[in-house]
């Protein structure tokens, strides 16, 4: 379907202060793409998308409600949470603030049905330290893959992450290897791993499980990359190309299977799960 507005490249949005726009909390917000004022309720009714086609970041619980069949989601490993392996200053405060969202970690894991298809599901939470990969996050995702391997179920994952969690140092880095090991075993068992990249998916998450899916979908306009755009700009001292590190650019360079609009997401994922069902 043709979009009524041309979507701006994500790095242009970033320059306009896109990253400073909080997750919707008041009664209204404005679209960073077309500058319309949007009622939060309208936004929620439209799966957090604007009529111009801009996809807002979506809290994990809303994403789950939107993506799964009603009452089919059964949360698992909710008791797993971050600890502070390095005794890093200010980390306890950061965690406390992140937990005021009601979540204990930056990912929600569980069992679900999507268009009648069974799967194990993980969805990262942008409101929890921008989905950063901590040891609790890694543990939940690893357990989910291990369970899915045992139960012979596909895994569907939605990534939103600024990357590894600095405050957990090397322990965070090791999560990348730990999850990759579980993904490898799940894959060797002949099972499907479908990943949906949403805005933003960067750093250590891109350099591990976000890029390890058999099928990799992305939402329109999502920032997807490894190194931070600003860091690259400072290093190379050259302006970044328009559309750099967007889902569209990743598609063009062959790192994404398809870009799927949110309103078609559930149907698309359901259809892909069905296609991989063994008869």
């Amino acid at each position: 379907m043709a979009l009524s507005f041309q979507l701006k490249a994500q790095n242009e949005l970033e320059r306009m202060g896109r990253s400073n726009i909080p997750l919707p909390s008041g009664p209204e917000t404005s679209c960073p793409n077309c500058h319309r004022t949007l009622k939060i309720r309208t936004l929620e009714e439209n799966a957090h998308t604007c009529t111009c086609g801009h996809h807002f970041r979506m809290p994990a619980r809303r994403r789950i409600a939107f993506l799964t069949d009603s009452d089919s989601f059964f949360e698992l490993f909710a008791e797993v949470e971050a600890n502070d392996p390095l005794a890093f200053p200010t980390y306890p405060d950061k965690l406390r603030k992140a937990r005021s969202t009601g979540e204990r970690e930056s990912v929600i894991t569980g069992y679900a049905k999507i268009h009648g298809q069974e799967c194990c599901l993980f969805v990262m939470e942008p409101g929890f330290m921008m989905g950063s990969l901590g040891s609790g996050t890694g543990e939940k995702i690893t357990r989910l893959f291990e369970l899915a391997t045992e139960k012979r179920l596909p895994v569907v994952g939605v990534t939103v992450s600024g990357g590894a969690r600095m405050q957990e140092g090397l322990v965070s880095l090791m999560q990348m290897a730990k999850i990759s090991g579980a993904v490898a075993r799940h894959g060797k068992a002949g099972l499907l791993y479908l990943v949906l990249l949403s805005d933003p998916t960067t750093g250590g998450v891109t350099a591990s499980f976000a890029m390890e899916g058999d099928i990799i979908l992305a939402e329109p306009g999502a920032t997807v990359g490894f190194a931070g755009a600003r860091v690259i700009e400072q290093t190379t001292k050259e302006p970044l190309p328009v559309g750099f590190q967007t889902a569209e650019s990743m598609l063009e360079h062959g790192f994404v299977d398809a870009i799927v609009e949110r309103k078609r997401m559930k149907k698309t994922i359901g259809a892909l799960l069905k296609l991989h069902k063994r008869i």
Partner: peptide
């Protein structure tokens, strides 16, 4: 660290690292 630049990103720096992690684990 892995090289930080436009070309490295466009040729899939993240994907290259991810593939090594999966392969080396096995």
């Amino acid at each position: 660290g892995a090289y930080c630049g436009v070309d490295a990103e466009e040729r899939g720096q993240g994907q290259a690292i991810a593939e090594n992690l999966v392969t080396m684990m096995e």
